[in-house]
């Protein structure tokens, strides 16, 4: 198709219509302010410490912040469970290679199945006795004499108690 200069002139004049396509009134008054605002924000964020930048990042992306919080909470729960498993396994106590029982060492007390259970071994309420091993049989023979604090400690009448004023009357 042969093109005449007039054709191009017409196209040029048509294209000139596009010069009238303008953004809404006042657009350029706000545009440069928006640009400068973002530049200032970039400069300020560059001067912040890493944790402040991270907080800003989380502020701008709440979904990501929530996801990270869930992930951290999940890791914490997993870590807790894992540490309990390890403690239970190591609670298999052995003395001289013989397992004498297992005890939960997860804590002094726990509440499971609606029952309060203490993991602290029960205190022996009977008289404290000493024991010695029989070298011949290897059995443990308890001594007949009880071992414990002197009896007078629990007999107030036998205690030699003196008050601070006791000696004053003698003078």
């Amino acid at each position: 198709m042969e093109q005449s200069p007039q054709d191009h002139d017409l196209i040029r004049r048509l294209l000139a219509i596009k010069r009238h396509e303008l953004p809404p009134a006042g657009f350029f008054d706000q545009f440069h302010a928006g640009v400068m605002g973002r530049i200032e924000a970039n400069i300020e964020s560059a001067e912040l410490a890493w944790w402040e930048r991270a907080l800003l990042w989380f502020d701008s992306k709440p979904i990501m912040a929530g996801a990270y919080a869930i992930a951290v909470a999940g890791l914490f729960v997993c870590g807790l469970e894992f540490s309990q498993m390890i403690q239970t396994e190591t609670a298999e106590l052995t003395v001289d290679g013989i397992a004498i029982g297992s005890a939960s060492t997860t804590g002094p007390a726990s509440f499971s199945s609606g029952r309060f259970e203490s993991s602290i071994p029960p205190v022996y309420a009977g008289p404290i006795v000493s024991a010695s091993a029989d070298p011949g049989s290897g059995k443990i023979i308890p001594d007949s004499s009880p071992v414990g604090p002197p009896a007078f400690l629990f007999s107030p009448s036998e205690l030699n108690t003196r008050t601070a004023s006791d000696g004053l009357g003698a003078r």
Binding site: K18, E21, P23, P24, F27, F28, F31, H32, G34, V35, M36, R38
Partner: peptide, 27 residues
Amino acid sequence: VRRYQQRIYATVYHMTSNHEDAADISQ
């Protein structure tokens, strides 16, 4: 920015034919 914002915006606008895109790209 004030000096060249209109010319930059106009070029981008006539290339994209969209006001929002032109504003974003210019910024």
